[in-house]
Nucleic acid binder design. Structure first.
Lengths: 138, 138
DNA sequence: CTGTTAAATGCAATCTACTTGCATGTAAGG
DNA sequence: CCTTACATGCAAGTAGATTGCATTTAACAG
């Protein structure tokens, strides 16, 4: 557990509970974004029983604080990954087996400025995921 | 109703039913991607009563045939837009009021090739949506 | 260390988006 | 028309996510 995380929680008036430590530990063990059910399964496996509702509530809260990132692959559910210590990046998912890979790149910095000029929106985020077929499923 | 659409349906062994004409008409009236509930509401308003289940089934089918595009804004539901006659594009949604704008651009053609080389996936699609705050909500 | 309290949790119930099974209806080609 | 494969409506069922409320616990003052 990083001190920086404890600090962010405190700044948000949040407590550092057993459940939160365990949830963050599960996320830190996984590089790739995982589902709520997978987080919960990880907790059970680590003998840290936490209600599924608590997992939902904490992931939402950690996302609000910017400690966790939500990723949607059009699967009908969200996936989550820790932000801390990782560069901004995107993903690709195989349409066959569902396998996910990190793509350590982002081509959108310049484009964001252009969009802000064109739309008068202030842009504060984007979702970019690729889809295709992995070598095994092709 | 475009002849091209009737042709695509026939090629897929699909019939050109009252429900399908009406669903496509509702989508064609909307430039921006709309929810299943909004499509259904549009049908009711046009005095073309079609069961919500039929809307779901047809949107899924039209998407398979490539006549309709599904867009996800992490709202817990999908939105749909017609493909026919429109250039490939992306969107931005306001985090305050939910308003959506079309962005008639796509910076990903070159990047896709690079990703295919790096990952050995064959890339056949991507999702790119921007988020921010519109002038009114800012 | 102990008492206080605001925040967090667990459990049960609920909600919403979406899907499935099956009997009936209908478009399309002969 | 007649046939038939495809499409629809209705009812019931899933799955992911949320809410209400009583109980527990982290954090902090004293």
């Amino acid at each position: 557990m990083e001190a920086a995380i404890a600090k962010s929680l405190k700044a948000g008036g949040k407590k550092l509970t057993r459940a939160r430590k365990a949830i963050l530990a599960v996320l830190e063990r996984n590089t790739l974004p995982i589902t709520v059910a997978e987080v919960h399964a990880g907790l059970v496996k680590a003998k840290t029983d936490v209600d599924l509702v608590t997992v939902y509530r904490n992931l939402a809260m950690l996302q609000e604080l910017g400690l966790v990132n939500a990723v949607g692959f059009q699967e009908g559910q969200m996936r989550y990954e820790v932000v801390h210590g990782r560069a901004h990046h995107h993903h690709i998912q195989c349409r066959g087996c569902g396998k996910i890979l990190d793509l350590m790149l982002c081509p959108l910095k310049k484009l964001t400025k252009l969009i802000e000029e064109q739309t008068r929106f202030s842009v504060d985020g984007h979702a970019l995921e690729f889809f295709g077929w992995c070598p095994q499923c092709r």
